[in-house]
Nucleic acid binder design. Structure first.
Lengths: 90, 90
DNA sequence: CGGCATCCTTTCTGATACTG
DNA sequence: CAGTATCAGAAAGGATGCCG
């Protein structure tokens, strides 16, 4: 489920910020393409890790956040962050 | 570092069994090809997550195990396993 | 604004045959 | 036994233009 160039960056972003709009995510993930952003968001949603909320407004407004199932992944993200911290200081 | 079809399976295997020979790994990872096994093992070793020990015997004997740096990844693996358990039962 | 469709390139993976 | 080399197909990723 987390295989993919931007899966973890997206999840970490939604971990830091509970609710993000599409364009916000795009801005906060320098280098990601529109295509991969939507593709990965769709996959994450299909896997039940994130929720997608379309407010049906004009202009469109779509928000993403970690789902309940996705929050079960938090221990993994936290452990990953800890790992990266340890790795930097060694 | 864990991106790749077999990276996590390999790491979990070395987590369960502290020392594994190449052919053992191949046997315990049904479907992996010789190429991907050695490629991934080399990458994991280059990233400092596993140690590779070549005993220089004939026939050859090469063993792999989690390195000290790789054991720093254990909390991640444990959290992942917990996640998968929770996911199954829901 | 958010997303699709298309095209193109790169990367990844697997099958097979071969070496010391 | 462990690893390499080569080839071919599949998959992933990026750039661009278009739509409601």
């Amino acid at each position: 489920m987390i295989q993919g160039r931007w899966k973890l960056p997206i999840l970490f972003r939604l971990y830091a910020d509970p609710s993000m709009r599409t364009l916000q995510l795009k801005r906060d993930l320098p280098g990601i393409s529109q295509k991969m952003l939507t593709a990965h968001l769709r996959e994450l949603a299909n896997d039940g890790l994130i929720d997608r909320v379309d407010y049906g407004e004009r202009p469109r407004r779509v928000e993403y956040h970690l789902s309940e199932g996705g929050r079960a992944l938090l221990p993994v993200l936290i452990a990953m962050r800890q790992f990266s911290v340890e790795r930097m200081s060694s």
